[in-house]
Structure formats: structure tokens, C-alpha cells
Design a protein around this nucleic acid. Structure first.
Lengths: 237, 237
DNA sequence: GGCTACAAATATGTCGACAATAACGTCAAT
DNA sequence: ATTGACGTTATTGTCGACATATTTGTAGCC
């Protein structure tokens, strides 16, 4: 009997990746309560283990950990969203430049393989795969650039971008268009550093432009509902 | 009776800052074993608390957490050192540029106050304060730039730089010279973004240039001691 | 005499239980 | 009927104890 069942292979690592993936794929929307007992029961692990994973996810910015309130999937504010994109514009062009200087056949192949996966997912209209792969593309750029610190940063920022896109309504098909990723890869394999850097910057600009980052207070959702009733009496009456 | 005793005010936060500060000031050199029971006894807290702090420090890259081996103060490799400096060169010029665009009187005052503290420490030859303040300067730039993600990144990278300087023998007086910080502040308050960015880059170049990042294997310190005895018989004989 | 194997000790990994706090529902009083 | 206070419940915070692995010391054997 082969160990084809991955149910309880490595409970702790499994838990981390499961939660992480679920958040990336928007199956756990921003704001979702992540109760410790709940997760412990679901994954058949101890609460201490859940707590450890939650702390790790909190440090990565994926979940918000409030004392005496528990863990929730992070809800980046518009201000934070702008800061995330700002930092990405700062480091991601540098990442592709560095990637170009260290490009080899293996990296080349990985980039093309990813593009294939993206086009396949898009052809099959596999929404969850599209969302996941759109983020994975930027993870890949970070991993291939050869700098572990840059890789970790862009990974965290891309993950937050995934949450931001969900929150601020950027249609994925428009935000992370397949052809933009392909154009970037083309510039990279052509070793045109300036072009690649500019394409990345434009790509990030497109993403941010498609976001609806209203400056209005949006931390309190209750007031939004309240304003819909009291501040707009002419809507129905 | 006033609560002037800070002994057991906030044990967990105290523990974190104490360890962090001790590492920054090189009182806990890279590689130092951080036993859980030891720390628990010293700070009169439970082991679980120590474990939590250690995990946090591990996430920040300050300590290395090896399964079944415990926690040690991180020892960045030469490769990691280069990557740290590479990333700093990528984001720190952007940080000062952003700081300039949002400069106000309050930030201005904080920058000058820091320079005063640095010159005072240098005049008094307070080595530990000099080391701490040299790192704090870059923390301050991050905090004042207004982007929390950039601030966190530069804080972590500066901390690692502090360990790197200790490991690879850059004399602090030469690596983080007071006047270089002062020149950067001058350019910032003059709102000369290009000059400030260039000065920061040069500053980072100077730091890296003063490091002795030999590519030789240096992960095992035991072999270093061993080589001093067997490989250099002509030293004393 | 040196090496190996076993055992003891120390330190880490893991867990369950208890305590405290916040959220929720209920009841009573105005 | 509505509001305020109180009690219950559920969830998080904290801790000590047990299990496991690694290291060190010792004794026996080659």
C-alpha cells in the first residue's frame, strides 16, 4: 500500500500550506475568523500547533492577530495597499534586472513552463488556478533572482496584493493579464533589462490603476451599511 | 509606592527587547546558543513565552532556529551578507526619496536629534551606543518614510547588517561614519532627492567595501580553530 | 590503550488542562 | 417596550508536565 493519502502526512506543514493556499485562492476571504479550536479540530492537530502557524502567518502579514480577539485573514487598508504597490515598484524592477544577469537554461525553462501553465488555466477558465498562478508568477521571479531576501519580500508583497485585489475589486483577467506576464518573460529572455524593468513597472501600475482605493473610512463596515440606510433615503423612497 | 521597578512589568515584551538589544549591541555575538530553559530562568517567564519570542526573532532573521538543535544568534553567510546589501541598495535610496517628499518639521527635528545623539555617543566613545545608534539611523529613515512595509524591511536588513559587520570585521568607526549620516540628513533637509539617494548608495557601498567577505567555507567555526593549529605550524615554531 | 556501545542527563518537541477575558443571551426594572 | 445589568458560554492566554532526541560521560571490549 503506497502512501498516496496525504491526509495526515505532516500535519503542521500541511496546515500551513492549506491555510495559505486557501487564502491565496480566495476560499478564505479577508476578514474570515480563524478560530484556534476550529482549525485544531479540522486538521486533527493540537491548538499549540495552530497557534504557531497563526503566528507565522501573522508575521508574514497574511493574517491579523489581535490580542484577545483571535486571528482573522488580513484586510489591508487602502493606505496599506498603496504602500504595498509602492514597495513592489521599488524592488520588482530590480528583481528582474538581477534575474537577467543570472539567467540560464534552467531558469529559462521554468519561466516558459509557468507561462504554459497560465495559458492552460486561462483556456480552461479555471478561476482558482488563474488567481494562484498570477501570484505564483511573481513568486517565481523572486525565487529565480537568486536573492533569498528579495524573494521573501516579493512573496509576501504578492500575497498581500492577492488580498488587495480581492478587497478592492480588480477583475483578475484585467489586473494580471496573461500577455503582460508573457511580455515580461520575453524581455527577460532577450536580456533587455531596461525593457523588462519598464514592463514590470507598467504591469504594477496597471494593477494599482484597476484598484478602487477610495480614501473614505472603510475600516468600519457597520457604518457603510448604516450610511446606505440613513444617508440615502431617496434611493427607495 | 510608585511602580518604578521595571523588573517584571511586562516580562514578554521585556524579554524580546532585551534579547534584541543585546544582539544589536554585540553582547550576544552571532552563533551564541539561546537555550530555552536558560532564558526562561533568567527572565522568570515560562518556556512557552521564550519559545514564542524565539520564533518571532527567527522570523525576523535575527536568530536561527534549527529543529532539535535550538536557537542561536544568526550568522549570516558571506553570500547572505551580499544579498542583504544588495537589497538595501535597492530600497534605501527609494526610502530617502520618499522621506523627502513627505518631510515636515517634526521629521526634520527627529533627524537632527538623532545626529546629536550620534555625535554625543562618539564624543563619549560609548562603543555600544555608537553601534546601536548607527543601526537606529537607518531604522529612523524607514520609520519616517511613511511606508510601514519599507520600514519593516529596512529594519530587518539593518539588524542583519549589524550582525554582518560584527562577523566580517568592519570597524564601526569606518563603516558607519558619523559624517556620512550627517551628509545624508543634509541632503534630505535640502530636499535634494538625487543627491540624498546617491549618498545613501555610496554609504552602503562603503559599508560593503569594508567587509571581508571571503568566499571560503566559513560555516564551521571548529575548522577555523583546527586550521590555526595544523595548517599554520610555522607561526610559532 | 583506544574505540565502541550503552546509559544517563540535558534540552527540545508536544500536548492537555486550567484560568481569564470577551461576547452573547437573558432577565428584570423603569 | 426598551435599556441596563448580570450570568452563561465560548474562545483565547498561560502554564506545567510528559515524551523524544541529542549529547555527554562511562564502562566494557578488542
Amino acid at each position: 500500500m503506497l502512501k498516496n493519502d496525504v491526509d495526515k502526512e505532516e500535519p503542521s506543514r500541511d496546515l500551513y500550506h492549506q491555510v495559505y493556499l486557501a487564502i491565496l485562492e480566495h476560499r478564505l476571504p479577508p476578514g474570515t475568523k480563524l478560530g484556534e479550536d476550529k482549525l485544531a479540530k479540522i486538521f486533527n492537530v493540537s491548538r499549540a500547533r495552530v497557534r504557531e502557524i497563526l503566528a507565522r502567518l501573522s508575521h508574514e502579514g497574511v493574517v491579523e492577530l489581535v490580542p484577545q480577539k483571535g486571528a482573522h485573514v488580513a484586510r489591508p487598508s487602502p493606505k496599506q495597499a498603496r504602500h504595498v504597490m509602492e514597495m513592489r515598484r521599488l524592488i520588482e524592477p530590480g528583481i528582474v534586472r538581477k534575474l537577467i544577469t543570472s539567467l540560464d537554461d534552467e531558469k529559462h525553462a521554468k519561466l516558459l513552463a509557468h507561462l504554459d501553465a497560465e495559458t492552460t488555466a486561462r483556456r480552461d477558465a479555471d478561476t482558482q488556478a488563474i488567481i494562484r498562478l498570477s501570484g505564483d508568477f511573481h513568486f517565481l521571479l523572486g525565487d529565480l533572482c537568486g536573492n533569498e531576501f528579495l524573494a521573501r519580500s516579493i512573496r509576501e508583497l504578492s500575497t498581500l496584493t492577492c488580498l488587495i485585489i480581492y478587497l478592492y475589486d480588480a477583475p483578475t483577467s484585467d489586473a494580471c493579464r496573461d500577455d503582460e506576464h508573457a511580455e515580461i518573460v520575453n524581455a527577460v529572455v532577450a536580456k533587455d533589462a531596461d525593457l523588462a524593468a519598464e514592463l514590470v513597472t507598467r504591469h504594477l501600475d496597471h494593477i494599482e490603476a484597476s484598484l478602487k482605493l477610495s480614501d473614505g473610512v472603510q475600516v468600519v463596515d457597520i457604518e457603510q451599511v448604516f450610511s446606505q440606510i440613513s444617508a440615502k433615503p431617496n434611493a427607495k423612497g
